[in-house]
Amino acid sequence: MRMPAQSLRFRIIMAVAIGLLTTLPAVSARQEASKDKNSAANHNEAAKNSSSEQSDGEKKFKQNCSRCHEAPEGFTPSISGTVLRHMRVRASLSKQDEQDILRFLNPR
């Protein structure tokens, strides 16, 4: 069946737009990485070391939870274990990831 010309044009425009959108993550990542590189030079080395445990949990939080939703603005530590148990089931977190994220949500 022949597509109407208007519909075909619409599909071509959208295909180009989506093609651009799918390549944007890579382009955008490169630009942001270079910005991070510049700003990282200004960071204090000692601060990096002291927060390594937290940043590991933070990294895993971003790798898993933040893929679907932003973190809530804040919640009481009394429910952090429940949140993590829910996420372990929902996102099929490994036990190690669950523990690292729990440490991140409950810094000592």
């Binding site: 989506i18 942001e32 991070d36």
Partner: peptide
């Protein structure tokens, strides 16, 4: 799904096929 760490863009997509129809979606 492709969501590079340092990127401002997240890309998600799905394709599904049934006995009588099929389709896909892509989201940026």
């Amino acid at each position: 799904w492709w969501e590079p760490a340092d990127s401002l863009v997240k890309f998600r997509s799905e394709f599904a096929r049934g006995a009588h129809s099929q389709g896909y979606w892509m989201e940026s």
